[in-house]
């Protein structure tokens, strides 16, 4: 049990930074977006890790609820919204990349910058 107690949060930090690295350092625009969605997914883990209560179950009241322990519903609600925001950003970002490809015939940041300098 001991090791799990903070392991979630460390993995959150590592995933966040892997995503961040891909967004900032990669030159390919699609790869940047993949990194960006990784970056956003890491945050889901942060929130969801706040949910569970020792000995609890998902907060759905089926039969007799007396004496049972339930986990926190709020992080789930917030992350449902965040997932939707993530996919919306992704869709819009990909549409922009498609247009960039049509306008510049490239999806590499350095090549686009080069073309703009002319």
């Amino acid at each position: 049990m001991e090791i799990l107690e903070l392991y979630n949060y460390w993995v959150f930090a590592i995933l966040l930074m892997i995503g961040f690295y891909a967004v900032t350092a990669k030159l390919n625009l699609v790869k940047k977006l993949i990194g960006l969605s990784l970056f956003q997914s890491a945050v889901f883990l942060l929130y969801i890790s706040m949910g569970p209560v020792e000995g609890g179950t998902a907060p759905i009241f089926h039969a007799d609820v007396t004496g049972r322990v339930f986990s926190n519903p709020l992080p789930s609600v917030l992350i449902l919204t965040a997932i939707v925001v993530g996919i919306s950003t992704l869709a819009l970002g990909l549409a922009i990349i498609v247009r960039i490809k049509e306008a510049y015939d490239s999806v590499e940041e350095n090549e686009i910058r080069e073309l703009d300098r002319q």
């Binding site: 967004v23 625009l29 940047k32 977006l33 960006l36 970056f39 956003q40 950003t89 819009l92 970002g93 922009i96 990349i97 247009r99 960039i100 306008a103 510049y104 940041e109 686009i112 910058r113 703009d116």
Partner: peptide, 12 residues
């Protein structure tokens, strides 16, 4: 288009 993409990434 690239300007928007940059804004999208940094804004996100």
């Amino acid at each position: 288009l690239p300007a928007t993409f940059k804004y999208l990434v940094m804004g996100t």
